[in-house]
Design a binder for these strands. Structure first.
Lengths: 206, 206
DNA sequence: TCGACATGTCAACAGGTGTTGGCCTACAGT
DNA sequence: ACTGTAGGCCAACACCTGTTGACATGTCGA
């Protein structure tokens, strides 16, 4: 690769700003419209460039999506957290990730009608949520099921709140979300099949 | 209307079979492909008729979807069921509805990228799940939130199992689903915010 | 200064979309 | 037997899609 300035740093190409603008516009469009309704033309217009530039820099729509849907859940290490708090902590973290980054939304909306995006979603949970859950669970063989159950509730919340916009779910504030969903996530991580709720209050830390 | 045979029965038009075939094909396509990827041409081909017939009978794609997405959750009356079993019962019923009818799938897949379909989904939960939950809940003001939470878990399960196909969630059999999700639904219906799980086994009836 | 290369624009392509109108055919009522 | 009409097919429309290639412009090293 061509370099300049200090010998170790890669040269900042003049096109990097354009690439970033495309990626940012792509994320927004995919998040708002899903895979098929997010058109190359619309993305290019948002980025104030010609559609053909999108093709030059990302090859085709599929690859553009792959680049735009790169995502890190940034899950915290929960092994040091008091056992009864991990549900609330994980729930709070996931809500934050959803609210401050379009990427998950793009991935979710696209994954419903696009096979490649669905595969991405599967990999994301297997590679990022899986290990974290495995580190918390006593019986290693149970880890995939427990991670799957967590996904069930986490994605269901995101779907109803951010995509379908069911009014009562939209109305919940962060504390209420953690208070309601935290114990569910907690049980999926550390509880038993068939276990029922009883009146032990959990701390609302997130 | 023109009638024949017995004076009271409406005449069965020759086109009724075609109409039904269109509707059935539309449900399958919308369920499998979502709103935009399910094309009128593909639906017509499945029904072995010309695309223009779809337009003649249903006006346009939007109205066709509206007709195809007509759905009744057929929620049972849960007021007579022992209080600690309603979570399991409701969970089992919802799983059955998902597995034996394409319509919910069509609605879900379409609702993610189509506003009208999302509105349909909201109405479905407000009009069908809402009242059932309201009948079970002590404090009437809490009913919408509780119904929303149930939707959160029910739709999240459907999303991960039938749409995203997360392997561990797909692998669960009916009994396991009821055993894991039942207590969650139960808590959303009858439990308290912040309540945690403890070792009280729930019956596995469905 | 000159040429190579990166950056960007324009116009067009081939194919697919929802939708429309004209035409043919078979059947019901007289 | 004749005719009106419902059921169905065909061809076409206007538009939008991803994608491509030719062409202009700018920038930087030699």
């Amino acid at each position: 690769m061509a370099e300049t300035g200090s010998t170790e740093t890669i040269k900042a190409r003049r096109s990097d700003a354009t690439r970033a603008a495309i990626l940012s516009a792509a994320r927004e469009r995919f998040a708002a419209d899903g895979y098929e309704r997010a058109t190359i033309r619309a993305i290019a217009a948002d980025a104030h460039i010609d559609p053909s530039m999108v093709m030059r820099y990302y090859g085709n729509k599929e690859k553009l999506f792959a680049a735009a849907a790169e995502f890190d859940l940034r899950l915290p290490d929960l092994t040091g957290v008091p056992r009864e708090e991990i549900g609330a902590r994980l729930t709070g973290h996931l809500v934050d990730r959803w609210e401050h980054d379009d990427t998950l939304m793009a991935l979710l909306r696209a994954a419903v009608t696009n096979q490649a995006a669905a595969e991405r979603m599967r990999q994301l949970f297997a590679a990022q949520l899986g290990p974290v859950v495995a580190a918390l669970v006593a019986d290693r063989a149970e880890a995939p099921v427990r991670a799957g159950l967590v996904a069930t509730q986490a994605l269901g919340f995101a779907l109803t709140r951010y995509v379908l916009c069911l009014p009562p779910v939209v109305a919940l504030d962060r504390a209420a979300v953690v208070a309601w969903l935290g114990p569910t996530i907690q049980r999926y991580l550390t509880g038993e099949q068939g276990e029922q709720a009883c009146a032990v209050a959990a701390p609302n830390s997130g």
